[in-house]
Write a protein that binds this DNA or RNA. Structure first.
Length: 220
DNA sequence: CACCAGGCAAGTA
DNA sequence: TACTTGCATGGT
């Protein structure tokens, strides 16, 4: 059995299923994916709650808001001027595609790679945000590489510091069956592991559930 | 107080 | 092409 598979089994046994992404709807996933760029989730979830309580968490309603008003509403997620523009860019695509396809679901029913290209053309959506949307909102089988995943790979000597996004993504996708549920769970488990055992401020190993895979200490 | 958090695009040489 | 920089709030 490949180490990538063994590690998954170990993580799942240790933490159990994570039920990701923490959102009620695919659109909520998309908004969260933009807002959480280089930002802690606690700052983002506060904004999402506010948008929900104001009943404006929909593509058309958010799209109608002037960019400066939107910026104020998402202030506490940080980089709010930048993210307001990025959200607007995404919303423009969505409103157009929903008009075109009839619904968000039929937009999502397109081919994975076609959808990925459309998302990447939006200014403010890079590979990680696009893949998060594809996996957790559109439920397409694609592996998300984020800061936690990068640290995880480095720590276990599975990749080098200079590896590209695509290389790291292929590392998972070439050694696992192409299943949405598996990619979803695996990435969620890596984030859970990272939050508890692999943060920069807390580099410890003795309690790490993956210690039998001989992790390398981050600070050397 | 300094450092960190589920990135990305634009600018520089 | 290969670095560097701006963006910003809230938690530890």
């Amino acid at each position: 059995m490949h180490i990538v598979e063994s590690i998954y089994t170990t993580l799942l046994e240790h933490f159990g299923p994570q039920n990701w992404w923490p959102a009620e709807t695919p659109f909520e996933v998309m908004v969260g994916a933009v807002l959480t760029q280089n930002t802690s989730w606690t700052n983002v979830s506060r904004v999402i709650s506010t948008l929900k309580s104001e009943n404006i968490l929909s593509p058309s309603l958010l799209h109608e808001l002037p960019v400066d008003v939107l910026a104020e509403k998402i202030r506490s997620s940080g980089y709010y001027n930048l993210k307001a523009k990025r959200l607007k860019n995404l919303l423009s695509l969505l409103v157009e595609e929903i008009e075109q396809c009839g619904s968000l679901n039929s937009f999502f029913s397109q081919d994975r790679d076609v959808l990925r290209e459309k998302l990447l053309q939006v200014k403010g959506i890079g590979p990680e945000t696009a893949d998060s949307i594809l996996l957790y909102a559109a439920e397409k089988p694609i592996f998300v590489i984020d800061a936690y995943t990068y640290r995880f790979l480095l720590r276990h000597g599975l990749t080098g510091e200079e590896s590209s996004y695509q290389e790291m993504q292929e590392l998972f996708m070439d050694s696992l069956p192409e299943e949405t549920a598996l990619f979803n769970e695996y990435h969620a488990l890596i984030v859970r592991l990272g939050k508890e055992f692999c943060r920069k401020s807390r580099p410890l190993c003795s309690e790490c559930p993956l210690r039998k895979f001989e992790p390398i200490t981050l600070e050397d």
